[in-house]
Design a protein around this nucleic acid. Structure first.
Length: 1060
RNA sequence: GCGCGCGUAGCUCAGCUGGUUAGAGCGUUCGCCUGAUAAGCGAGAGGUCGGUGGUUCGAGUCCACCCGUGCGCACCA
């Protein structure tokens, strides 16, 4: 107990605690002891484990930890399982890089089974790094978690998909989706959103000749889609014009856009008409590389055509753009797709055959130019999506048969569900999240890839009948030998992971037939968007509903989650969509009730941290350098929900100084004197009511803090709680300990000393407990050394404690207010000394207080006198001598009463003599006055505010209704006393320099040539001895070996110290 | 382009339902204190509360528009 090391190293202490927690299973115990408590359900958003954890991961995990620890210490049972997102593009892309293979052909050549096995391995590669980081920051998490590729998880996801399929919410359609040609797959809106970037694209206006000397002008930024054009669309009700150019050409375009495309005076308008009139007009295709096989090369009307840009005539290629595709279906147009899924032009495409779509822009433009079909060309800068996993690959809109979830028709219910969630900050609910959900389009679910949850739909290859399955068991019912191929492979190679049974390529071997039905059921080739995996986590982590139904029910919905705001379109969206669709009958909100939204961590300049720029310190290094608690405190106390945080070294250093060292110093003070005194806590502590004011004050502050901390957590504002604790620690260190110092070093036993020790001990114990969710390591250090509470197994950890509750017997708001007033007066007094160059060591005869409300500081004048080093404190009985009064309206009280006449009142009060008004108020209790508009007024005490200001000529300072006046006359007697204090100060400094023990006795030999100083020392000899623990003070020649010199005022004192 | 957030001291941020002298920490200058102190304390300097207009007796706070910044959305063919 009460160990104090000379140079405390927080990182070193932290490592000790990590070992202790592990050894004694403190995390597990903290769970076990609350097993009967009310559960607090938390979902861990599964991170993708295929990269090193970064500062964002640290921030998220710390934020989770503080809430979970808090709830645990409130007695809630808070299980927290980790989980890993293991499927999908991120993993595949990583493996592709590793293997050096690219594209569909590359992966197929490498072998799907081998590829899948690589993916499994890759997923676990960084897990150690994540565990190390989590452990080092003190994030407690049950590592016996889930991974999305495990069979039970996949089967759970299958169940979800089958449920949607059976509800007709999962469908296949030929639609335009965002397609990644190099990756051979489509992407969901969420993924696409990640990859937008500003790029320069060609912007061309092309002539479509009608064969009668006229040309329709159409604009596009994707020239490579022009060969696949099958129609042009116009706005039915807008005006169009035929324009004859001076060179004889006749062009058709929207009337309103003519000026934009043609120079003034270079044309004349021949004819005007509405778009509808163009309907049915046929034109010559630019190329004849394929047969659209249907209605084609004709003008139609489309309601999506606007005159915001281009020419008012829109080029339609149903094989690509989403509008184009829908329009093609509506109009019964033909279809021409000259670009293959891999992004290259097909063999029929003459001079661009085999060329990548993007590379074909230029040759096509050149060709059109040569043939006189290129009306104009420019560069167009706009945002365009690229593959988020391969930033050089532009995506294209590409018509493809894909699987969708019908989320758009269920939009209202999802929005309603979301509206019931408690978001912190609140604006996310109707802002970011709400907007995202309201703009929701059907979820493009399928991926034509390999490593993902296989879409569990089998189609009869003759009849086309579809069946969805929800488990391998269901498959085995249909065909007991369904997995024969896998089983043989497993027998041949026992290392084959069992989970590959439900993955490609093995799942594709699964087929069945049905009696009396021709054909074989074969699985569709697609896997699904891995966000669906993540969003299924609330039930799939348990393998629900195939197993663990009870566990699922017990842990649904979550009480609390927290992630960074980028999860709006990611995890939060997926969870809300899936849960709403799957569990329509459950009470909203689900699957989570509250969510704390985090911002991003930036560097010191506020720039986004990026691996490439290396503009941040690696987290693990920072944790070792500053300590995990410092990093945690810096992150937790500086960030409001929803906002980002800047993080750099100095901020962590500040946290060490502001909190860790401050708390540590208080502890070290207590420990030092407890050891000297042999004091030990003896429960129960003395009754609060019997303790001195200062003790009751800090206990009242403690209690107020407890209340505020709980209230802040109630509002999900951990940062507010952190700041409140900071304030308590300040008060403890800068006022309580400072003011109590001598109580700890008086000799012998006294009730006061015992109260001081008990109180400081008690407060530190509670501070340690309250800090435990924020700085678990420091809290543990304090707790252990303060020697409190040992559980039945002899294990003692702050993390097994309950947080203190508010205690009415401690609360004392009057005392808190009084002490605040005293501290304010002290600050004023110090200000007076400061301005008048009177250092605090110099005693002064008197301080005179003039107070608007003297009752408040009654009984505290001794404290004030001591702190200010004055002999006497007087409450002035003739304030008029020292101060002038100013009476100003209390706007809050008078505003509603006076309304428009408020300024008149203000003016009248300012014009009147404040001292007279004050006198009137004192004698009659009201102020009567006349406003400039002639109305008489009566103001009560509560309706005005009285301010005091010291008159000229006094050493005084004022604030509000308080004035402190100091008697600045330093008599010879006072001066000698001050000198004696100087002497004490210098002897103490020497003691410290000599590194003497606090309780060591000394003998002092001193000398000075100055008579006044000598008199001062002699006069105050006994005081000097007492303060410096000197047994003797002797005038004489100081020992030359250990001679100290001090200049006091204009004199010099030399002295030597000998230990006894 | 549309939407959301943010914009308060050199830096990082507080400022509740509008109430009149706008706060804290860091930094800086001066001073002080030290028997917990490689610490701490006080004071000074430093602010058109992004801008303009409006509502109101009163606006950092409410409204409108604008500017800057971050993010989100996305068929700009």
């Amino acid at each position: 107990m009460f160990e104090v090391e000379q140079n405390v190293s927080f990182p070193a202490l932290e490592r000790e605690h990590l070992a202790f927690w592990k050894e004694e299973r403190i995390f597990e115990r903290s769970l076990e002891q609350n097993r009967a408590g009310k559960p607090f359900i938390f979902y861990e958003g599964p991170p993708t484990a295929n990269g090193q954890p970064h500062w964002g991961s640290v921030f998220t995990r710390v934020s989770k930890d503080v809430f979970l620890r808090y709830q645990t210490m409130r007695g809630r049972f808070v299980p927290r399982r980790e989980g890993w997102d293991t499927h999908g593009l991120p993993v595949e892309v990583e493996v592709e890089k590793e293997l050096g293979v690219k594209g569909k052909a590359g992966i197929e050549a490498y072998g799907i089974e081998a590829f899948s096995r690589k993916c499994v391995q890759s997923v676990w590669r960084y897990i150690d790094a994540w565990h190390d980081m989590s452990q080092r920051i003190g994030f407690w998490l049950d590592t016996d978690g889930y991974a999305t590729y495990h069979t039970y998880y996949v089967e759970s996801v299958w169940w979800a998909l089958k449920t949607l399929f059976d509800k007709n919410l999962l469908y296949q359609d030929y639609k335009s989706i965002w397609w990644w040609p190099q990756g051979n797959t489509g992407l969901s809106a969420g993924e696409v959103g990640e990859g937008y970037r500003a790029v320069d694209d060609p912007s061309v206006v092309v002539r479509f000749r009608t064969g009668d000397g006229r040309s329709l002008l159409a604009w596009t930024t994707t020239p490579w889609t022009l060969p696949s054009n099958v129609a042009l669309a116009v706005a039915a009700k807008e005006n169009y014009a035929e324009v004859k150019q001076t060179d004889g050409d006749v062009l058709i375009m929207a009337r309103a856009l003519v000026e934009k495309h043609l120079p003034e005076d270079s044309y004349e308008i021949v004819r005007e008409f509405v778009g509808k009139d163009l309907e049915g007009l046929e034109y010559e295709p630019l190329y004849n590389w394929g047969d659209p096989g249907g209605k084609a090369h004709v003008v139609g009307c489309g309601d999506f055509v606007t005159l915001d840009s281009g020419t008012g005539i829109v080029h339609i290629a149903p094989a690509f753009g989403e509008d184009d595709n829908r329009y093609g279906k509506e109009q019964g147009l033909g279809f021409l797709q000259l670009v293959e899924p891999d992004g290259t032009f097909n063999a029929d495409s003459e001079f661009v055959a085999g060329m990548n779509f993007k590379a074909a822009d230029k040759p096509i433009m050149r060709d059109l130019k040569e043939r006189g079909l290129l009306f104009s060309q420019a560069t167009y800068r706009h945002d365009y999506p690229f593959c988020p996993r391969a930033p050089l690959d532009p995506l294209i809109q590409y018509a493809r048969k894909s699987w969708f979830i019908r989320t758009s028709t269920e939009k209202d219910r999802v929005v309603k569900n979301n509206a019931a969630v408690r978001w912190q900050p609140e604006h996310i609910r109707d802002g970011r999240m709400g907007d995202f959900l309201r703009n929701n389009v059907d979820w493009a679910l399928s991926r034509e890839r390999w490593w993902g949850t296989p879409l569990p739909i089998w189609i009869n290859d003759e009849t086309g009948t579809m069946e969805a399955v929800s488990s391998t068991a269901e498959i085995l019912v249909r065909n007991p030998d369904a997995f024969a191929a896998f089983d043989r492979a497993k027998a041949a190679d026992p290392d084959l992971p069992d989970d590959l049974r439900v993955h490609k390529p093995w799942i594709d071997e699964v087929t069945w037939t049905r009696d009396g039905e021709p054909g074989t059921y074969r699985r569709v080739p697609e896997v699904i968007d891995c966000w669906f995996d993540a969003g299924s986590m609330p039930f799939a982590q348990w393998g629900y509903p195939h197993q663990n139904r009870d566990k699922f029910e017990a842990a649904f919905p979550a009480d609390f989650i927290t992630e960074a705001i980028d999860q709006t379109r990611g995890w939060w969206n997926a969870m809300l969509q899936i849960s709403t669709l799957l569990f329509p009958d459950r009470a909203v909100p689900h699957p989570f009730r509250s969510c704390v939204v985090l911002g991003f961590i930036t560097d010191a300049e506020g720039k986004k941290q990026s691996k490439r720029l290396r503009n941040y310190e690696p987290p693990m290094e920072a944790l070792e350098k500053y300590s995990a608690d410092a990093v945690r405190w810096a992150l937790l106390s500086n960030t409001a929900p929803g906002l980002g945080a800047k993080f750099d070294g100095p901020i962590a250093t500040e946290a060490v100084r502001d909190l860790l060292l401050k708390v540590w110093n208080v502890y070290s003070f207590l420990a030092t004197y407890a050891r000297i005194d042999g004091w030990e806590p003896q429960p129960p502590p003395p009754p609060v009511a019997t303790r001195p004011t200062l003790d009751r004050w800090i206990l009242a502050e403690l209690d107020a803090t407890v209340r505020d901390v709980h209230a802040a957590f109630e509002r999900l504002e951990s940062n507010v709680a952190a700041r409140r604790l900071q304030a308590l620690v300040d008060g403890l260190s800068n006022w309580y300990v400072r003011r109590s110092r001598d109580r700890f070093w008086t000799e012998g036993d006294s009730a006061d000393k015992h109260a001081a020790f008990s109180t400081l001990h008690e407060v530190l114990c509670d501070v340690a407990t309250l800090l435990a969710p924020f700085t678990p390591f420091l809290a543990e250090t304090l707790f252990q050394r303060l020697g409190r509470g040992v559980d039945s197994d002899g294990v003692s950890s702050v993390h097994l404690l309950h947080l203190p509750d508010a205690r009415d017997e401690l609360a004392d708001d009057d005392l808190r207010a009084a002490m605040a007033a005293v501290r304010d007066l002290v600050a004023l007094g110090l200000q007076v000394r400061n301005v008048n160059r009177l250092k605090v060591r110099q005693p002064l005869a008197e301080a005179i207080l003039v107070l608007g409300d003297p009752s408040r500081v009654e009984g505290y004048t001794d404290m004030f006198a001591d702190e200010l080093n004055v002999k006497r404190v007087t409450l002035s009985d003739e304030p008029a001598k020292y101060v002038e009064y100013e009476v100003v309206p209390n706007f809050r009280a008078l505003g509603p009463k006076l309304g428009k006449r408020m300024p008149l009142c203000k003016k009248a009060l300012a014009a009147a003599d404040g001292s007279k008004l004050h006198a009137q108020l004192e004698s009659t209790g009201t102020i009567r006055m006349r406003l400039t508009d002639g109305d008489a007024f009566e103001l009560t005490r509560a309706e005005v505010e009285i301010r005091l200001r010291a008159k000229e000529g006094y050493a005084a300072a004022s604030h509000g209704d308080r004035v402190v006046v100091l008697d600045t006359r330093v008599t010879d007697e006072l001066k000698r006393e001050g000198a004696a204090r100087e002497v004490i100060h210098h002897i103490q400094a020497a003691r410290k320099k000599l590194d003497l023990k606090y309780e060591a006795r000394i003998q002092v030999t001193w000398h000075t040539d100055d008579d006044d100083l000598a008199q001062a020392v002699t006069e105050h000899e006994s005081h000097i001895r007492r303060e410096t623990l000197a047994t003797t003070t002797q005038r004489g020649a100081p020992n030359a070996d250990n001679k100290h010199e001090a200049s006091i005022d204009d004199a010099t004192l030399s002295f030597s110290i000998a230990t006894v």
